[in-house]
Nucleic acid binder design. Sequence first.
DNA 1: AACTATTGTCATTGA
DNA 2: CCTCAATGACAATAG
Length: 653
Amino acid sequence: MSRYTTMGCGSSTSLVYHSSDSWSCSIPVCSVAAGLQRLTALTLFVCFFQDMDLIDILWNQDIDLGARREVFDINHRQKEHELRKQLQLEEEKRLHLMREQEKALLAQLQLDEETGEYIPRPPPNAPVEPAVTPLEVTQNVGFTQETGGSMSFDECLQLLAETFPVEQNQSPSVCLDTPPVSVPASSNMMSPEPTALSPAALSSGQLTPPQRVSPDLEEAWMELLSLPELQQCLNMQMEDTLQTTTYPLPTSAETQTPSYPDYPPVQTPIFNPLTSISDAKTNSLNVGPAEFMNTFDGSVPSMPLLDAFRQIKVDAPQLDTSFSGEDFGGVFYPPTEQEECSSQPGQEESKRMCDSPNKVAFAHMDLYSLSPGDSVNRSKQSLTAEHLDSDSGFSTNGSPNDRSVYGSGSFGCSDSEMDEMDQNPGSAESDYSEMFSLNFEPEHFMASNSVTELSRPPQQPEKKPKQREGDPAEESGNEGTPFTKDKAKKRSDVRLTRDEQRAKTLNIPFTVDMIINLPVDDFNELMSKHQLNEAQLALVRDIRRRGKNKVAAQNCRKRKMENIVGLEGELDSLKEERDRLLNDKTKNMKNLKEMKKQLNSLYLEVFSMLRDEHGNSYSSSDYSLQQSTDGSVFLVPRIKKTFKSKENHPSPL
DNA sequence: AACTATTGTCATTGA
DNA sequence: CCTCAATGACAATAG
């Protein structure tokens, strides 16, 4: 991560007079440029790519829950690795380009001698270049603006105040109003550890960039998101965010909006979580702050970050005015405006972005959080629902269709219980949300509590929906992700849906997950608590049996694959050993041959030295040397051996 | 259309 | 006898 540090620090500190050891702190949120933030963010991404191996490991740990052949397929892994390398290269290229652009941008800045800050030069054509050139950069805005704030918002505020004294009366109230939660959340985004990611940030803006930027980033993002720990962290932070709902956001928004009437209408739709959701209903959100606030009243939980971002964006225009240089805003903030969707009908692209799942996700969360008194469960449920929704939503084919596809799959089952469902296939879609709110939420909730959650490998199918939660973008662009997760998810969805539907049809009061994963005692207790009729009992038993068997089958297959892999390894090692033994054999044969040769020569030598009583040498054809068991050597006549041995005993040498 | 891979399910077996 | 896990076999599905 040295590169990470140097690049981050180098580019930032060179621009901002305020320096710090930590590069994350040196990232200017308001004073320098969004472009810088984009740069650092992209640097971060590159670093993420560098850590892809780690991610890969984690990923595989996750995937390993179910045995798939690819896990053991080295070629497959190598392909992935190459692909990743390629992505890395591309990313570095992009980064290089960014730096070039950054230089160009800096060229348009001049040093303010009073403040020591770099400020944009007045030339009227200044904004043109930055506004146009960093198209790709522009697309990162959602990401960088959030992630760029590695410093706390107070720090940002301070910096902003120092940089633009004019704004002091406005900014403090704004920024201080921003929830403390959003600060670590957004700042953590810059940290390479996935655990630091903020769910809200992810849901709102973080998810967008990969979708907007490039498939590479998207893929990387998805892989990041698919990390179980990350998701866990996301959930945790989401809960935190949900619990911290007491900030007076509306006030800040209200103070902001009227103050700068030029911008708010434009800005609000960008980060308005409800815009995309309630698009159909309240498409006129940009009409006025009052409506805006009304719309937001219920969505407080998710607002902190959004509001913060909106404030950043709203602050931007202020900066413009304060510096009386529209060019300034043109230089630094065109990206934000490019992202604005609802206010600019011509931009279908950005509009589509606004409909992107993260926004939808946010909306769902907010909607769910509307119901008071429901905290954790609700948040989890909303997570589930939102991503299920966003999942299909992001497929750009219209969520209802996708859902109905799934739904029809579930209804297509031939079970008798499903007959009545088949009769009104139209209910598939309508029942969907209800179904998941009814069954899915407790399922996940239970899953987190249940014992089996700990021994997760068998739970793969149940876990897949969670994976979907984690990365709504996955549905659209996981062609790069290994292990055919997508398909698996769809199937598991169908499967779960089927069981869910069955349970729902018979009004089973528990979740499928409970039915399957509960320990026997708890399960029996649960059964005894509720009065279930025969059909219900049978179904519950079937669901439990099927669920357990499903898990068992997965385990079995995993074991089988592992066995195969183990046997293959064993085969390899045995082959190696065989080769080694063959080598030994030939070597030994050679040695033996050599020794025989030596023995023969020695024999001849010894034999030639033997003399009889007359001093004559023995004929090798008539005599031979033989060694007895006790080590003594005898001269034995070859022919007439029998006679000679009878008549005269061999003479010991 | 045939083939393959994946996954879910059922039946059976043994602990 | 019941429960459960393991496993072979089959079917459905998607690519």
